[in-house]
Amino acid sequence: MTGLTTHETLREIEELQRRCEEFEGISMKLNWDSLRREPGGGAAEWLVTYEDELLAGFIGLYSFGSEIEVCGMVRPGYRRRGIFTSLWKRAQSYIARGGAQTVLLNAPAASKSAAGFLKTLPLDFDHAEYQMKWDEKQAAERSAFENKILPDDHVILRPARADEMALLVALDSRGFDMTPEEAADMYDELAMEGNTEHIIVELDGQPAGKLRLWTERHETWIYAFTVDEKLRGRGIGRSALLQTIQREKRSGNGVNLEVSLDNPNALKLYESCGFVITNKQDYFRYIG
């Protein structure tokens, strides 16, 4: 297991990811915001294997409350050598020590190599997510920016304050069916470190929802987007989404998000605002 992450090793992981994605024509979800955090600040744990002085294998373990997500890869040309099997065995020891209640293995739906390995494990399908990207042409065709939404003086987006942790936790807990303790575990600290912003959505001056933005290399990802269930159906989510798109567009950033396939209302909203599906990620629950 690594200790303090180094820029050199992270660059090697990035290079390995590019190789794997180009080889299979896929997009991997490695949660780079977690990989780059310092230990103790919500950082991911990861294991690596080197062969011929090259990074040949990687596995990342991402803790979200009582749940751990696992994602990994092996360099093309070094597969079928048992590298990932060995990494998975080492990861299981870490997972057992941590006492996670749920272990989810995440893989691109289009990855044949991942599908082959997953078949060897005792798994149940848990859920799938679409990765989506805002497309200006699609937005224009769907007239998303001409749709009637609440005026901006009613729906306002602002940065969350440091004293609003309880508000963020409450919105996450109600919006994503988590206990307050699980939601609180998602926040190591509210200080806006790195490339992350926590945003409060207000309706007429009162908190109505929230979202989290993570930006790197002119690509912004929208995470944990929720509107208080008592205020849904009033166009608040649409207004907040369109304002976020407009803001990021002015900054020259692409806009991306993820949505579960079992959330058709959110999928319909995102598509109506010009988002198109780019990839699909499958999640399997480990039952071994």
Rank of each mutant, 00 (worst) to 15 (best):
E189C: 07
A191T: 11
A191K: 05
E193A: 12
G194N: 06
T196N: 09
E197F: 09
E197R: 04
H198W: 11
I199M: 10
I200W: 01
I200F: 00
V201W: 00
E202A: 06
L203K: 01
D204R: 12
D204F: 02
Q206G: 09
Q206N: 10
Q206S: 13
Q206A: 14
Q206L: 13
A208C: 07
G209W: 01
G209F: 03
G209S: 03
G209A: 00
L211G: 06
R212Y: 07
W214Q: 14
T215R: 12
T215C: 03
E216Y: 13
R217F: 13
E219S: 15
I222W: 03
I222Y: 03
I222T: 07
A224D: 06
T226F: 05
D228A: 12
D228V: 09
D228P: 09
E229N: 11
K230R: 14
L231G: 05
R234D: 06
R234A: 10
G235W: 00
I236G: 01
A240C: 02
L241V: 02
L242G: 03
L242P: 05
L242F: 04
Q243F: 01
T244M: 05
I245V: 15
I245M: 08
I245S: 07
R247D: 11
R250I: 07
G252F: 00
N253L: 07
N253D: 12
N253R: 13
N253E: 10
V255C: 11
N256V: 08
N256T: 07
E258C: 10
V259G: 07
V259R: 10
L261Y: 04
L261I: 11
P264F: 09
P264R: 13
P264V: 02
N265D: 14
A266R: 08
L267Y: 14
L267V: 10
L267F: 13
E271G: 08
S272A: 13
C273V: 13
